[in-house]
Amino acid sequence: MSKLPPQLDAEHFSPPDLVTLPRDQATHAPRILLLYGSLRDRSYSRLLVEEAARLLTAMGAEVRTFNPAGLPLPDETSEHHTKVLELRELAAWCEGMVWSSPERHGALSGVMKAQIDWIPLFAGGTKPTQGKTLAVMAVCGGVHSFNAVNQMRQQGRWMRMIAIPNQVSIPAAFNEFDEAGHLLPGEYFDRLVDVMEELVKFTLLTRSVSPWLTDRYSERKKRAAKARIA
């Protein structure tokens, strides 16, 4: 090893290498949580999630979809509210997520943001979203826009998630679904298949090594300092 910088605490410095890479791979079906950002009866963000769920199931994933109806606004009530507990339990259960929001006034919807805000960065000594995969999708009422997906990517990074490279954004979504609520054949359906494939692949690749990927020098130092004080 080359000479270390003098300000570095060598005791807690552990350079990544193949020797420390965990070898055990999980074999159960990837666990994916899907969230959507609209309460309308014919919600295109929900229809897109339902299409994604069908594809993920066909790809061998175990999927669960959270219904945001009845979820209170953040800070409106206790975190022990039934819907908040349901959402947090699902966030802890999953290994990857799909977020689907309508774009409203050039941004993700309030319904979508409320769900994200109710999922904590820290809970009971754990980080419920850290190292988990994320796919983002948006539906637009008019012309093509990427504001909502870009904002959700930003939110996902803040939640310490692994946002996959591909994404879905559908303009004039009311023209892209049939009466039964299925996404019509075409480039947007093909893109949805691409994104769900990519999500499953990234989840399979990262879930078993997530604790290794997110093991940080700064946090090892802090844990050691707390242990000495205790």
Rank of each mutant, 00 (worst) to 15 (best):
M1W: 12
S100I: 11
R46H: 05
T214D: 01
K132C: 04
G125I: 02
V195T: 15
L184P: 08
A138Y: 02
S101D: 06
E198G: 06
A172G: 08
Y36L: 05
L85D: 05
F122W: 10
L199H: 02
P22G: 13
R228C: 08
R23N: 10
L39Y: 01
T206G: 03
A26N: 14
H81W: 12
Q154K: 09
A53D: 01
E95C: 14
E179A: 09
A138H: 05
L71D: 00
Y36T: 03
K83D: 04
E179F: 02
H80R: 14
H105G: 11
E176N: 05
W158R: 08
P128N: 01
L8D: 08
A52Y: 03
R23Q: 15
V98F: 02
V193C: 07
R40E: 03
T27W: 04
T65D: 02
T57H: 09
M196N: 08
S14G: 09
E197A: 06
T65M: 14
L48Y: 05
R157I: 14
L205H: 09
Q151V: 07
R207H: 13
D215I: 01
L4C: 05
E76I: 01
M152Q: 07
V168P: 06
G60S: 04
A163G: 11
L39P: 00
D194M: 14
A172N: 13
E89G: 11
G156E: 09
M159A: 07
M152H: 05
R23H: 10
P74N: 09
E89T: 13
A92W: 02
V63Y: 01
R216F: 13
M59P: 00
A138M: 08
W212S: 06
A26F: 15
E79N: 12
G186A: 12
Q167S: 12
L213Y: 00
R40H: 04
P211A: 05
M137Q: 12
V136W: 11
A69R: 09
D17E: 12
A227F: 07
R88E: 03
G181A: 02
Y188R: 07
L56G: 04
L73Y: 05
A135M: 10
P165Q: 07
N166S: 15
A107V: 07
G142S: 10
G186L: 14
D41C: 00
G124P: 03
W158K: 07
L204Q: 13
L184G: 07
G106Q: 10
P16N: 09
M159L: 14
W118C: 05
K3A: 14
P102D: 06
E51Q: 13
T129K: 01
P5C: 07
